[in-house]
Design a binder for these strands. Structure first.
Length: 584
DNA sequence: GCCGTTTTCGGCCCGACTGTTTTCAGTCG
């Protein structure tokens, strides 16, 4: 049982407790525990065995005696007694009802007790038959909205990738800016925190047009934007709508004086904010989206900037990527926050493709584009023969390609170094698909899995472990593949692979492209714990895609990584190559 | 159910919006 599954069971239990009208604080401790479990890099299953130290679980913030017992029960029996007890009273399908917009625990409980409705199909039928109108607070409007909500849910209930969300944010921002008196528009929420996917888009808007006495005109402007598919809500300074892609957007227009408080508030995460407000109360202060103020007389202490708010709470400024209530408040209080990686720390990109295989640009074009982006070295790593659909190279072509790469390297006259490399395929049995004598000519050999994702997970792991043993393997490319991680999200398998890579001195790649990325912040933290060399690469198939490094950086920041944790922060190609070849 | 520079008991974050309310409960972020 992995941590994600344990967390899900705790979270489900919290929802069932809510439906059962349990003490809200008890519910919250189950949610908090679920959150904490999800963020652990060590597998709790290994801490819940009879011979493990019983104090290890209790050391996790938010886990006390009762919750530790629950976790032990989950690991040993696959469930916990309280959840089973609640499932005698309620149906598991009710948990899905909670995902519908406007549906909360109270409504779900009422539907069950009054109509014995427990799943989406039954709810839809009841709504269409007009049965809901007999219940309190459920009139015509509620029913109509609910039926629409069910349709939307069935059509699309997924999250959106960060790059797509950012693109939409920029599009909407441009339209909002057309209104006079708008100075600044900042995406908040999980987009600002750099999550790999976002559930909805939060846009904060400020400027003279957002002052309280005139804001209604700007609100009207936003509510009438042409790209709105459905207007969900419109208040004094807030507009919510969905786009045709079904992405929900919340726009808030706020006066300059309270912009920092709003930014802090709407960036979250929720758990970070709760912890922050608790800290405020201990200091006789109260924090909301308008200001940090004194409890006794409401005197404003800080409001205009986030920096001022954190400072007034005796904290260093906490970068948005760290705001997950996973130790950042403690670190900020003791000046122990890490110096996070920024774009300018990255001096090289070790994985990209050219027209020789499935890329869109030549070696020279990639080199010029990388130079224009301030990089000091790159590796050209086209595909090998097993990837026939990409026009992958056999040994002969690969050797000829090296020659061309060296020519371009010479042409660049030291302005940027262009290193010969290749992305080899890891075959089903774990061997690489080109000769060792060819690979020996390459500075950068990226070994990646591209096929047979249907292999059992153990075989897949053995296959990768075998490829790591090849003395020419320098980098493990997209270490397991998104498809594998989907089957085995936070698995012991990846742990095994990272551990062996660290022992052998093989670097692990964090693929910066949101479309291809597979290591999230937890995996990266695990890699750091094992002492892996880590590299962030774009796997660019065109010059444009070199820009995707900025998305990958946010994952590194979320993992608390510093420039010293990466190898392509090395200032020169020579320094990088020394690191790449060294064994621990 | 967790937690402790006022505490091992008594607290536990905050405000906006909606629908159907004539004063508010439920949901959401």
């Amino acid at each position: 049982m992995d941590n994600i599954s344990i967390a899900r069971l705790l979270d489900e239990t919290a929802s069932l407790l809510e439906i059962d009208s349990a003490d809200p604080f008890r519910v919250r401790s189950y949610r908090r525990a679920a959150e904490a479990v999800e963020q652990q890099t060590t597998q709790l299953a290994t801490l819940a065995t009879p011979d493990a130290d019983p104090k290890a679980l209790l050391a996790i913030a938010g886990i006390g005696k009762g919750m530790a017992a629950n976790i032990v029960a989950i690991v040993n029996t696959g469930t916990l007694p309280l959840r089973e007890e609640l499932l005698q009273k309620y149906k598991p399908t009710m948990l899905e009802l909670l995902r519908l917009p406007g549906m909360g625990p109270k409504t779900v409980a009422l539907l069950w007790s009054a109509l014995e409705v427990a799943d989406i199909d039954a709810l839809e039928a009841a709504a269409k038959a007009g049965d809901l109108n007999k219940l309190p607070r459920m009139g015509e409007k509620f029913t109509t909205k609910l039926i629409k909500g069910i349709e939307d849910y069935r059509r699309n209930s997924s999250r959106f990738r960060i790059d797509q969300a950012r693109e939409q944010a920029e599009r909407i921002s441009a339209l909002i800016r057309e209104f006079p008196g708008i100075d600044e528009i900042t995406p908040a929420g999980s987009l600002r925190r750099g999550r790999e996917t976002v559930g909805d888009l939060d846009l904060l808007v400020t400027g003279p047009a957002c002052e309280a006495d005139v804001v209604s005109a700007a609100v009207d402007h936003v509510a009438a934007l042409p790209l709105i598919d459905k207007l969900l809500a419109k208040g004094q300074n807030k507009v919510s709508f969905t786009l045709r892609s079904n992405l929900q957007v919340d726009v808030r227009l706020l006066p300059r004086a309270s912009y920092g408080a709003a930014l802090q508030y709407f960036t979250g995460s929720k758990m970070h904010n709760v912890a922050l407000r608790q800290r405020a109360i201990k200091r006789g202060l109260t924090l909301n989206e308008y200001a940090l103020a004194r409890l006794e007389d409401n005197t404003i202490v800080a409001a205009a900037t986030e920096e001022a708010i954190y400072r007034a709470l005796d904290l260093d400024y906490i970068p948005p990527e760290l705001r997950e209530n996973s130790g950042e408040l403690e670190a900020a209080a003791t000046h122990a926050l890490p110096q996070l990686i920024t774009l300018t720390d990255i001096h090289g990109d070790l994985h990209m493709h050219t027209t020789e295989t499935d890329g869109a640009n030549t070696i020279r074009e990639m080199a010029e584009a990388a130079l224009a982006r301030g990089l000091k070295y790159i590796a050209i790593t086209d595909h090998s023969k097993n990837l026939a659909m990409t026009n992958g190279m056999d040994d002969k072509r690969a050797l000829a390609h090296i020659k061309r790469i060296r020519e371009v390297d010479a042409q660049m006259q030291g302005r940027i170094r262009v290193l010969p490399g290749i992305e080899v395929d890891i075959l089903a049995e774990g061997q690489l698909d080109l000769d060792d004598s060819t690979l020996a000519q390459m500075d950068v050999v990226v070994a990646s899995v591209h096929s047979r994702f249907d292999q059992p997970i153990d075989q897949m792991t053995d296959r990768i472990l075998c490829a790591l043993e090849n003395p020419h393997t320098r980098i493990l490319g997209h270490p397991t593949g998104r498809k594998v991680l989907k089957r085995d999200p936070y698995a012991l398998h990846l742990d095994k692979i990272l551990k062996r890579a660290a022992e052998l001195g093989v670097a692990v790649e964090h693929n910066a492209s949101p479309a291809r990325a597979d290591l999230n912040d937890l995996h990266l933290r695990l890699a750091k714990q094992h002492g892996c060399k880590i590299t962030i690469n774009t796997d660019a198939h065109s010059t444009d895609e070199l820009d995707q490094i900025r998305y990958g950086i946010t994952q590194l920041r979320r993992a608390w990584l510093t420039p010293a944790d990466l190898i392509n922060t090395q200032p020169t190609a020579e320094a990088l190559l020394t690191q790449l070849r060294s064994k621990p």
